[in-house]
């Protein structure tokens, strides 16, 4: 058989179980014809990685007209070989989800509700809180007179959901601000 596993799956769209069928000598013409009518027809394939646990199963996201229409395990990735668990298999419903938060929300002190805001408004407000807290509470020297430049009263918690790039930049930003209370799921 000259098919690569991935090429074969593309043709049949029917999963690993079919491999044995072809090996047993089944004619694949019909399966191929069926494949052309699949819902992923014409969709762009994008490699993504499951956002849960540390196996990092690779997933193929099918995108058409800028919309995610299907996700499936990447059969070429040597670790998951196309398989996904319940969480990985739910990637599509996880990203297209009515519970998603769509806009920045703000809850004023003592308020009973959220208010929708835009990003510029929240970012400038947050920057103000950060600066005011830091200017007021940065500890430049400890009791022994040693320089410590530490902002004990501010913290950052999270997250293993961040990419390596995001972790690197968040760490750098926090140390720049003087933050030392920093923790995330690695300690859970």
């Amino acid at each position: 058989m000259s098919y690569t596993r991935r090429g074969f799956l593309k043709l049949t769209g029917a999963g690993v179980a079919c491999l044995s069928l072809s090996q047993l000598g089944f004619d694949l013409t019909e399966a191929r014809a069926y494949a052309t009518s699949l819902k992923t027809k014409g969709a762009k394939e994008v490699i993504t990685i499951c956002p849960f646990c540390s196996v990092s199963c690779h997933i193929i996201a099918h995108v058409r007209d800028g919309k995610l229409i299907s996700t499936e395990g990447d059969p070429d990735f040597p670790i998951n070989e196309g398989a996904l668990c319940a969480k990985g298999a739910a990637l599509l419903s996880m990203s297209r989800n009515e519970h998603r938060i769509k806009k920045p929300l703000y809850r004023a002190p003592y308020s009973e509700k959220w208010e929708e805001k835009d990003w510029d408004w929240v970012l400038s407000k947050i920057a103000r809180r950060v600066k005011d807290t830091r200017d007021k509470e940065l500890i430049e020297k400890n009791d022994k007179g040693q320089t410590v430049n530490r902002l004990d009263s501010m913290f950052l918690l999270g997250t293993s959901h961040a990419s390596n790039e995001e972790c690197a930049l968040i760490h750098q930003a926090m140390r720049g601000l003087g933050v030392v209370h920093m923790d995330h799921q690695a300690r859970i």
Binding site: P51, S56, S95, R100, I101, P104, L105, V122, S163
Partner: peptide, 24 residues
Amino acid sequence: KVKTEVFLLPSAHRVEKEGTVTNS
């Protein structure tokens, strides 16, 4: 009675961003 000012920013999902992750 709760004084905290809370900002809740909407987060992008894994499929909506690019970058690297490191497995176990």
